[in-house]
Write a protein that binds this DNA or RNA. Structure first.
Lengths: 213, 213
DNA sequence: GGATTTGACTTACACTGTAAGTTTACCTTA
DNA sequence: TAAGGTAAACTTACAGTGTAAGTCAAATCC
């Protein structure tokens, strides 16, 4: 660790954020990991916020856009699944991407690539803009919600068993029923990105067909 | 303001959060507004986090579920639109709702009501669970993204005019095209919740029809 | 009226981001 | 090689954060 660099800082910051979340990424904390004092970081980033912007760029760059020519539905689907995988690798990122404006090259390339798929599929540019926005709203929202729940079905089962007794079945019948199904194993309780994603895409396809006729 | 109470604290905290965001809601700040010192608040809430949980509950309680019996599609649609309006009134809330687990009565009632609409529409409980999750993922994600952009078309136009010159049209053709359309007024650039919502619902309807046949 | 509980208070600690100013070390040019 | 310039580290300081711990007065209850 002879000398600092933006790349080195970003790499270590990414490690910390992935492990401890954005709130665990303090300038002093990060500096310590780099064998340096906090203020030295300000030679490379104007503020903590701009550092986080750089982290978001780094993450967006990981999302892969389909290269070979696909049906627009398959293309968008594949893109969303890639975004999903990347966002799950970086648990802090979905909220950051939703709530901050990023105009870095990775983000622009990501948007451009998505628009291109839709336009190639016969949509106008404003329509492609709506489609991109709708898909990402769903993907970001889904990931963020999923991250707050236990991942393993087993943990889910335990959590359900723990909390369910306190919930009156008379006022919340369906909710409690679901809880019982999760506890007895007849329903895993886990959600998949594909469920809503395929509904969205199916709706879009219908929308396009209806307009053509 | 003779005496503190959870209701009074929540009311003022809600004002602050709505105006300055969650990061503007500090215990000292909040206490000052209540003519009290910070530590007095801890007589009513164990921590800042539990206070925020209470705020979320308060917000969820504002969401209205359709009362009269509607088609399940219309019922879910109406519910999502209500949630959307409420979340826009409380700009900090969408992220909070996505990222924290809330088991208060308002939240449970909200979920239960949503499940009930879907089940009444012929879906199984696990399916209703998936539907609820998909819709809320989209709504939360949409609101959060929308809140970071300028609201007025005019501001959007100005922002586009300001940033577009720096973006090379050769590498981002569709993106730049969209920018031009926003600047010249042929495309407002604004998104609507309904676009993706109706796609989702249409996809769900198809899904159900296909299964029935 | 005395005991008990409630709800406010003060103080203190370990953090946070970052503005401002200083020193060290290297690199370039004479 | 010596000198000058600059880049990149440093220290110090400030105003803020959440909250643990202990104190003290007033209201409530037996």
């Amino acid at each position: 660790m002879s000398r600092l660099s933006t790349e080195k800082i970003i790499a270590v910051a990414l490690e910390i954020a992935d492990r401890d979340g954005l709130e665990g990424l303090s300038m002093r904390n990060l500096a310590t990991q780099l064998n340096v004092k906090a203020m030295s970081l300000y030679n490379y980033f104007n503020s903590r916020e701009t550092l986080i912007d750089a982290l978001v760029e780094k993450v967006v760059a990981e999302i892969v856009l389909p290269t070979q020519m696909l049906d627009w539905v398959d293309g968008l689907r594949q893109r969303c699944l890639s975004a999903y995988q990347v966002l799950k690798k970086h648990p802090w990122a979905s909220v950051a991407m939703m709530s901050r404006i990023n105009t870095g090259p990775a983000m622009l390339g990501y948007i451009e690539g998505t628009l291109a798929i839709a336009v190639a599929g016969g949509w106008s540019e404003p329509e492609a803009d709506h489609i991109w926005n709708a898909l990402d709203s769903y993907v970001y929202g889904f990931v963020t919600q999923e991250l707050k729940f236990p991942v393993e079905p087993q943990e889910y089962q335990q959590a359900a068993a723990q909390y369910l007794p306190e919930i009156p079945a008379s006022t919340y019948p369906h909710f409690v029923n679901l809880g019982h199904q999760i506890i007895d194993g007849s329903y895993h309780g886990l959600h998949t990105l594909e469920f809503g994603l395929d509904c969205l895409l199916e709706g879009l396809r219908r929308h396009q067909q209806q307009r053509a006729s």
